[in-house]
Simulated assay, not measured.
Amino acid sequence: MNKGLTLTVVFQAQSLNFGEGIANISELKKLTRGNGNLYTFASRQCLRYDIVRLGSMFYNWNTQVVDKSKGTVQFRDDCTIKDSEEMDLFGYMKTAKKGDDEKGGSNVRSAVARLSHAISLEPYRSDMDFLNNKGLADRIGEHPNLANVEQHFSFYTYTITVDLDKVGKDGDINLDNEDKAKRVEQLLSILKVLNRNIRGRQENLAPLFVIGGIYDIPNPFFLGRIKLDYKNNKPCIDSGILKQTLETKIFDKSIDKTTTIGLVCDVFDNETELKSVFGDSNYSVEKFFDNLRNEVKAYYGM
């Protein structure tokens, strides 16, 4: 039985991930739903990038594990999960060239920490920002260059699921439980203060609401279970969907026993309702992560 940690986070930010664009228009990455609404998203790849960036900044994660010796930018053959927290948590693929002495193929390790896209909870309504570099152009008496950039300020949600039994294990490698716990704890600390640098801005991706825990299987129970409505001109998280999700049973054991929430006060209009659903299992975001780190330590026998 593989124990799993899963978190579903709600945060608020603006214009997080751009696509290729058309002419002088910078387009946000978007998804279309059946009702015709467009929802912007930050890809799981960009979330991973910022997690690793902060891991390197805060905890000196080793990112010097990449080369292009085989014509493709990829992780080095001589590096293992011992050398890289990133390779341990998010997996890797190392290709081999076909040659006289090689059959080719790939050496693949699946991610043990799996991210979803961060998808907006409010539809995109075609807001645009008109930009130019007039300040620079005026210095040399030239005409400015023009650009249009799509803008979207919204609540977003994403989910991360970690297979705790597979952290620190790869083939013959099996790290000490202390190292396994340390890597998961560091990941949680990063998620608590996650941010993104983009186009001169630093956007705050830290949770305003978070729900999850450690369960008997690694499964994203609350992925797709966050719905946002507005009442009294304030956002509300649909508690009915969460109540029904809490009834889910794994091996005849309801997940409500190990599920907690953390929230920032005075953001959501139905804060009191959300707290009543979880009773003594609702906390501040800081306390939520403190409790989860303690559960991780206990799981690994620390």
Rank of each mutant, 00 (worst) to 15 (best):
Q64L: 09
K166V: 01
M128A: 07
N148V: 03
R114A: 05
G105K: 00
Y49E: 15
G91M: 14
G4Y: 00
G301W: 09
L5I: 00
E86M: 14
S126G: 09
D266K: 07
G262C: 05
F222C: 01
R53Q: 15
A42I: 14
N291Q: 07
G4I: 00
F251A: 10
T272Y: 12
Q12M: 08
N282S: 12
Y300P: 09
R225V: 07
H117Q: 08
F278C: 01
N174Y: 12
I211N: 00
N294D: 05
N197I: 15
F155H: 13
V285S: 01
D88F: 13
Q64I: 09
G224P: 06
N197F: 15
N145V: 06
F90S: 05
I217T: 03
I211L: 02
K68Q: 14
V65W: 15
H143T: 10
Y156E: 01
D163H: 07
V52N: 07
T248C: 01
K134T: 08
D269G: 09
N204E: 04
E273W: 10
A42G: 13
Q244H: 10
F90A: 04
R114N: 14
N132F: 06
N177H: 14
D163P: 11
V264K: 15
L89K: 04
Y39S: 13
T95L: 11
K287F: 08
N132R: 05
K30E: 11
R196T: 05
F289D: 00
M87W: 04
K68E: 14
K70E: 15
L136Y: 09
V108D: 07
N62K: 10
Q151G: 05
L164M: 08
N133Y: 06
F90K: 03
E178M: 13
K82F: 11
S281I: 03
N107V: 11
F90D: 06
D269S: 08
A147I: 04
A13M: 01
N24C: 05
V264L: 12
G212S: 11
N177E: 10
A137T: 08
C236P: 14
N2P: 02
F209D: 00
I25A: 10
A206V: 06
S43M: 11
C236Y: 02
T8P: 00
P144K: 14
L38T: 08
L223W: 02
K234C: 02
L146W: 10
L175G: 05
I226K: 07
A298E: 15
T6N: 06
Y158M: 09
M302N: 04
E295C: 10
S43Q: 07
A96H: 03
L188T: 00
Y283K: 08
N204A: 03
G171S: 07
L175R: 07
N132L: 03
K275L: 02
K234S: 03
L223G: 03
P144C: 13
S120H: 10
L131M: 12
K169A: 07
S15K: 01
D290I: 09
L28Q: 09
P144W: 15
N270Q: 12
L274P: 15
I214Y: 09
N270M: 12
E247F: 05
R183E: 01
E286G: 10
N62G: 08
E86G: 15
G55R: 12
T63F: 11
D77S: 01
